[in-house]
């Protein structure tokens, strides 16, 4: 055993370095290829936002009494509390089937909607939640929120929700004011993001999406998210 081991110690140094160099070359080329293909993929997903029309401005406020939730259209007879993580794929499913209805309820002033932005899926959720809160200051929470779910990648923490890409999302939907991009890149809302996360236990929320209608947990009976079922629950209060 030791004899064979010894035999190689005086091996050809040139060959060894050549092999190390080749391996390094393969790895570096591969990394460059991967980074490029990821960014191409991200840009492709922005195509889905083409022609997006920014809606009317909707004021949003932070309500400390409701777990610091972002409150849209306060004072309506029905209050809907939504708990979601911007990276959660099931929240995207929820948004796809019920999002438009919720937006209409806010815009027609029929419901108060409180958004609780969780970020337990990782640092990219934190960044996206920060960006969403910045968009609320601009009065375009609903627009940015919709856009984030339109482009949400299938995989969590794959590098997609970088501040650069979040600024690009704003760009594509026409939300490009300096206050917005500054707030986004500086992470001005990170404390609020943390406050939302910290309020989870108070409301006994352990997952997303979680919905409360007038403070009562909405327990869906169907497998997916059924718009009619949700609408009836909201109308019943």
């Amino acid at each position: 055993m030791s004899k064979q081991a010894k035999a190689t110690t005086g091996g050809d140094h040139f060959t060894r370095w050549l092999v190390i160099g080749m391996v390094a070359l393969v790895v570096v080329t591969g990394v460059i290829f991967s980074i490029m293909s990821s960014s191409t993929k991200a840009n492709e997903s922005f195509a889905a936002l083409k022609g997006y029309k920014l809606g009317d401005s909707v004021a949003a406020s932070v309500n400390p009494a409701a777990g610091f939730g972002l409150t849209l259209n306060p004072g309506a007879p029905v209050t809907i509390d939504l708990w979601e993580d911007p990276q959660c794929p099931v929240c995207r499913t929820f948004e796809t089937s019920i999002g438009a209805y919720i937006d209409t309820m806010v815009r027609t002033k029929k419901a108060t909607v409180v958004y609780h932005l969780l970020s337990f899926l990782g640092p990219e959720s934190v960044r996206a939640a920060n960006a969403l809160m910045c968009s609320a200051d601009e009065g375009h929470y609903l627009d940015f929120h919709q856009a984030v779910y339109i482009v949400q990648p299938a995989l969590e923490n794959s590098g997609f929700f970088s501040n650069d890409n979040l600024v690009k999302i704003g760009d594509h939907i026409g939300l490009k004011s300096k206050t917005f991009t500054d707030c986004l890149t500086k992470g001005s809302k990170l404390e609020l993001v943390k406050a939302h996360a910290d309020s989870m236990p108070t409301y006994k929320v352990s997952g997303t999406p979680t919905v409360f209608i007038n403070g009562k947990l909405w327990e869906r009976t169907s497998n997916g998210f059924d718009l009619n079922e949700f609408r009836l629950a909201v109308e019943a209060g």
Binding site: G30, F33, S34, I35, S37, S38, K41, G122, P123, E124, P153, L155, E156, N157, S158, G159, F160
Partner: peptide, 23 residues
């Protein structure tokens, strides 16, 4: 190798390395 986003996501799921390095 040819699904870099998936690989990056998988490494960050371990929550050992900071995301940037994980990617």
């Amino acid at each position: 190798a040819f699904v870099p986003a998936e690989a990056a996501s998988a490494v960050s799921a371990y929550k050992i390395l900071p995301t940037q390095i994980a990617h």
